[in-house]
Nucleic acid binder design. Structure first.
Lengths: 213, 213
DNA sequence: ATAGGTAGAATCGTATACGATTATGCAAAG
DNA sequence: CTTTGCATAATCGTATACGATTCTACCTAT
């Protein structure tokens, strides 16, 4: 594994963990020193993450975790609503016991952060689709909202609701029930989209109050 | 515009122009010298393009234009079939005269290469959707097949068929006919997918003959 | 007191340099 | 004639270095 991969993984993990909240500036020298490498591979990793929209370069100012508008969040889930059902459809006939076990494991893992576990669950169910591009796009879409998912679930005091939905989806997959799995997945995505939308609008109101001071 | 952007644009253009056929190796020093810059921004640009799947880094060997399997091509068009109708749907109510004019211009432009013109046409019709991420994903999907589209259309002796389809889509957009535009777009994508699939299967047969020699 | 300006520090972006890895060509052995 | 081994060249990946830009804190003038 190259040094660039190391840095990318490190930043990505921080993102899924919710340590890198939107608006955070990433100092290249800091990252380099912390990981014991030079700036070059750090910058290359940041360029990779910026290319997929997870970070943003601002000329001569550095790299920042971009914040999401309500419209962007809505688009994010609209895209997932299109792509993820396709992945599940294609994966369903080829789902192995290993895939199902991995998905179940992700539900009960406590070594993973919330968003890491969420993506691990979905990835396990989608992998058998063998759609690499669709998987990559979906991972990007998951990661893009991860900072917010961390924020709003911790404010709502947990993710029990989401866990129940995951369980229902997993059951449908076990029984090979394509139509049920598909509609449960779409419901799941719509619920998440709704929750995020509420959070972002609330946050917007607060920001407004701040500007009024 | 940063040096990295310059390099990225240069490589991207070569890709859309069909100069960079799959299997081509990109030498970092060559690129740097040709553009009058050092290797650092060159590598950063290549990392960006690799992050979105348009290039592939091979450890200690360099960067190569990846070749597409028939399955990957099929997935590519399956994704476009999902995303692009959504973009057109969202754009249609907001299409301006400027957008329509730009789309028409792309059809008759001879300063652009075939694939550049193709993307310019679709982008003009999608821009009003204001879906940045969906646009970015679509551009990636277009670019990924561009090297092949160049190859198979020049073997088929032109793109008249595709031009007709573009004209029909544009007309439907002018009349604000959402269902017609949508179905014409899907037909257009299916036709392109079919043509590429045929080409790749034929190419596969030839490769087989080569190995037998 | 506040706006504006000016060092100085911090940070960025790119060039140069160099060890590490891989490709290439040629010689010798089978 | 083909294959193996090695020396050399080409290329890659990352560290260091440095000018350029931006940020910060303090100072001055209105």
């Amino acid at each position: 594994m190259s040094t660039v991969d190391l840095v990318q993984g490190s930043v990505m993990a921080g993102m899924l963990r919710g340590e890198l909240v939107p608006g955070t500036w990433l100092r290249q020298d800091d990252l380099a020193e912390r990981l014991g490498v030079s700036k070059i591979p750090v910058r290359e990793a940041l360029q990779r993450l910026a290319a997929i929209g997870l970070l943003r370069f601002e000329a001569n100012r550095g790299v920042v975790v971009p914040s999401l508008s309500a419209a962007e969040a809505e688009e994010n889930y609209a895209l997932r609503r299109l792509i993820e059902p396709m992945l599940l459809d294609r994966a369903l006939p080829n789902l192995s016991i290993v895939d199902l076990a991995e998905a179940e494991l992700a539900l009960s893992s406590d070594s993973l952060s919330l968003t890491e576990a969420n993506w691990a669950f979905h990835r396990a169910l989608y992998r058998a689709s063998e759609c690499e591009r669709g998987m990559a796009m979906t991972e990007i879409l998951h990661a893009a909202v991860a900072p917010y998912v961390v924020l709003y679930t911790e404010r709502l005091g947990g993710a029990k609701h989401s866990d129940d939905e995951h369980g229902a989806i997993l059951d449908a997959c076990r029984h090979g029930d394509r139509t049920a799995a598909r509609s449960l997945l779409i419901q799941h995505l719509d619920a998440a989209a709704e929750a995020l939308d509420l959070y972002l609008k609330e946050e917007g109101r607060q920001a407004l109050r701040w500007t009024r001071h």
